[in-house]
């Protein structure tokens, strides 16, 4: 089994009622499996925020970071999960 920490930001915190999740995943799981696990817990509201209408891509400007690296610079939804990883699900943020 793999234990990962998921950090939520912005409006996602309200949907989940928390900003941190600790999830156990099967060996060999990838980011897509993790998302499905999260959507199974928090339902359509979470899915509709994070994913676009096709359900195949992230919603506009959403990002997933794996230990701080944008998952698109890794293997995107197929990025393998590893024990101890921190996964950020990040809505668009802005400032400066």
């Amino acid at each position: 089994m793999i234990l990962v920490t998921v950090k939520l930001m912005g409006h996602l915190i309200k949907i989940a009622g928390t900003n941190s999740l600790y999830l156990e995943m099967e060996d060999g799981s990838v980011i897509r499996d993790l998302l499905e696990q999260i959507f199974s817990i928090y339902g359509a509201e979470m899915r509709n925020q994070v994913m676009d209408h096709s359900g195949e891509s992230l919603a506009a400007y959403y990002k997933i970071l794996v230990n701080g690296r944008n998952f698109k610079l890794l293997n995107a939804f197929s990025t393998p999960l590893e024990n101890g990883q921190v996964i950020h699900i990040m809505p668009p943020v802005a400032g400066g």
């Binding site: 970071l65 809505p91 668009p92 943020v93 802005a94 400066g96």
Partner: peptide
């Protein structure tokens, strides 16, 4: 645009804090 329509109005510029720290 999400930055000017929701993020800056809802969380202000400090909406960046968690994201910037996540990026190191």
């Amino acid at each position: 645009h999400p930055a000017t329509a929701t993020l800056l109005p809802d969380f202000g510029t400090a909406s960046l804090v968690n994201g910037m720290s996540a990026f190191g």
